[in-house]
Design a protein around this nucleic acid. Sequence first.
DNA 1: CTATTTCTGGAGTGAATGCTCCGTAATGAT
DNA 2: ATCATTACGGAGCATTCACTCCAGAAATAG
Lengths: 222, 222
Amino acid sequence: MQQDRSAPAGVSRRGRPRSFDLDVVTAAALRTLWTKGYETTSIEDLVQATGLAPSSLYAAFGSKQGVLEAALARYDRDREDLLAPLERGSGGLDDLRRFLSSIRHSLTQSDGPGCFMVNTATEVAPRDDRIAERANRYRERVRDGIAAALGRAAARGELALQDAEDITGRARLLQAAVYGVQVAARGGATEEALATVDALRRQVEQWAGEAVQLRDRQPEDR
Amino acid sequence: MQQDRSAPAGVSRRGRPRSFDLDVVTAAALRTLWTKGYETTSIEDLVQATGLAPSSLYAAFGSKQGVLEAALARYDRDREDLLAPLERGSGGLDDLRRFLSSIRHSLTQSDGPGCFMVNTATEVAPRDDRIAERANRYRERVRDGIAAALGRAAARGELALQDAEDITGRARLLQAAVYGVQVAARGGATEEALATVDALRRQVEQWAGEAVQLRDRQPEDR
DNA sequence: CTATTTCTGGAGTGAATGCTCCGTAATGAT
DNA sequence: ATCATTACGGAGCATTCACTCCAGAAATAG
């Protein structure tokens, strides 16, 4: 199997340099795999999408699985804007609200694709440990990001919690529900997906409302 | 394309009768498609799983897609025990609790498969309208079943609801979360899937607790 | 019984698959 | 300029794919 021979950044290498931008090619491959699915995408499809010859594709990625891994890594990186505010945002519940708004927005933009990680997790994770690990790490990242935002919200008094267990539990609930929304979206049920996100938002506001009720009812405890 | 020539029940037909049980064969095909996925399953795999020759397989199902449709129909039927109590049960929240317990139990039994409908929805629904419709109908069935149970619970006073919208919203939330759990399970994250179901159960109990609080706090309203 | 209909299973179809080989082009190092 | 090294692209590899054909077997109708 051939290896990716791309140079470490800044180090000039002998021989003919590659004539394409690996990032651009990876993005094109991601788009194709996302919409068509892994098995249904042929090398010919990737050749057309990237404009590369088969041999160049294999020189760069090693195998079809290699293309998938690169696409997953790229997807991970592209989701930084979505997840970083959850993980390290300065807001509490607002960070979570913005997250759900972003999810909602993405549903109206892309038609069919759903979430690349969700699609890949169900299609290829069961028979590829490396892919499974990546998909699981991403899912945990979403869950932990939501939990972090919930934790900040609790610290601000925006949530009424009985114990720390509640944060993890609610984060798990939201993460799972968001994944479920992506399944519906992938199946073409955009309206239902949107309505479900709205239901999630209402649940979050209900959690917030409990904290307000608690404050109003027991002001002496402040 | 050949058609399924199976006779209507009770009507004897001329010619050599088929020597296999269509139900048994469909069940075997379902099992294979469920664990391996649609694209990864070859006709050869189905031949080995069912014990039928390719031509008999095609005589019975017409095409590989036909096998998938039959398997989905079979899956639908097999889920009757799970969904009927939700839809037409005599309990309220208890029906929902039993549903979640069943989901939880199935996670510890099967390793890897997840939910056949979820897997199929993400893998083949985007490029096959018939499959997409079937997957969407199933998803709506789960949602409406949960909503029906929640409705009965509300009628019994087990839930405190502001409006009818709440029932649909909560049903959507639960349905999506259950689907998300299946994605995690398909990825091999059984422990996480179990923990998420537990979180869902706690959320349901919290909803129930609100109703109790409301009763205790405003007994004059009864 | 005979005639007819249907099913069975194995061999085999063309097409598509993932992947590789190799001659040539293009670059950097010397 | 020369050489070493790498990338490019098209032709082509063996294999696998979903699917079909056909000759024989097995059943029922009359």
